[in-house]
Design a protein around this nucleic acid. Structure first.
Lengths: 142, 142
DNA sequence: TGACAAATGCAACTAAGTTGCAATAAGATA
DNA sequence: TATCTTATTGCAACTTAGTTGCATTTGTCA
C-alpha cells in the first residue's frame, strides 16, 4: 500500500482529495503504529498545516466509514487509528512508555473466528490481538 | 471465584473492606462482562449506594494495583474493568449494541508470547484478544 | 477507647470527543 | 473559464471521562 494506491482508494469512495486529508493519510501511512486524534493534530500542526480538531474527528469518522482506516483500542485515554492494509497484524503495547509497535501475524485466527460463529449465537467478523509487555527502550532505562 | 474468596483476597492486600468496595466487587463479580466507571457509578446509585465518582476511580485504581481487577479496552469512550479470575478468557464485542460477552479461551496463546519475546526485543507479559461481530440479540432485530 | 492511616466527598480542573451553524473550497458541468 | 452544487472546514459551545488538592470521615488495631 503506497500513497498512490491510497489516493485512488480515497477517490473511489467519492471523497475529495484535500490537503488535510492527504497529509493525514500520509502520516498514518508513514507511521509504523496507530496514531490518536490529538497526536495527528499535533503532527499536522508541526508540519505547518493548521487544522481544527473538529475536522480531524470528522475526517477520521469519514475514513472509518469507508473502511480506509480503523479505530483500535490500546489503552490510554484517546482512541488510535490505523490504515486498513492487506497485511493483517497485531500490536505490541509497552506498559511503560505506552508506545505501540506493529507485529506481523504469527498465527492464523480465522479458524477461531469460525469456531465461535459455529458454536455460539455470535457471528464473528473480525478480531484484534494485543500483546502487552516492556519494549526494548524501556528495558535498558529501567 | 466467589464473594468469600474475593473478600479474603482483598483483605490480604491490606485494603479495608468497606460497603462501597464490597458492592463494587459484587457488581463486577455478578456481571458476566466488564463494566465501565460510569456504569458502576450508575449501578451503585441504583442500589441506593451514594458514591462520588472520584471514589470509583480511586477504587478501580487501588484494586488494579493489587491485581484484583484489570482494565480492558473494548472500544467506546470509557475504559472497562473486570475481576482477574483464574480462568483466562477473551471477549466478544457486538458492533451493533456494543455489549460485551466473555468467551472461554479456545487456543493457547502462551506459545505466541514466548515466540515474540524470543524473536524481538519486546518482553511480552500478557495479551488480550477481542472478537468483533454481531450478537444473537442484534441479529434478530436487524 | 484513641490514634492513625485509609477511605470518601467536594469543587475545580484537564482532556477527549461532539454538535450546530455559518463560511469556504473542490471539482463537475456547461 | 464561470458557475453551481456539495463536501469540507472552522468556530464556539457543549458533554463526558477522568484527575487533583484538600478537608472530613471512618475502619482497624493496639
Amino acid at each position: 500500500m503506497d500513497a498512490r494506491q491510497l489516493k485512488e482508494r480515497v477517490r473511489n469512495t467519492g471523497l475529495r482529495f484535500t490537503k488535510i486529508r492527504e497529509s493525514l493519510l500520509e502520516l498514518l501511512l508513514e507511521s509504523g503504529a496507530p496514531l490518536s486524534a490529538p497526536a495527528l493534530l499535533g503532527l499536522l500542526h508541526a508540519k505547518g498545516i493548521t487544522v481544527n480538531k473538529t475536522t480531524i474527528y470528522r475526517e477520521l469518522d469519514a475514513l472509518g466509514q469507508r473502511q480506509i482506516i480503523r479505530q483500535v483500542q490500546l489503552g490510554g485515554r484517546a482512541a488510535q487509528y490505523e490504515i486498513i492494509a492487506s497485511d493483517h497484524h497485531h500490536h505490541l503495547v509497552c506498559l511503560e512508555c505506552k508506545k505501540v509497535e506493529d507485529v506481523d501475524m504469527l498465527k492464523d485466527l480465522d479458524q477461531e473466528e469460525k469456531k465461535i460463529t459455529a458454536s455460539t449465537q455470535f457471528t464473528v467478523t473480525s478480531h484484534s490481538l494485543e500483546f502487552y509487555g516492556i519494549c526494548k527502550g524501556c528495558k535498558t532505562t529501567i
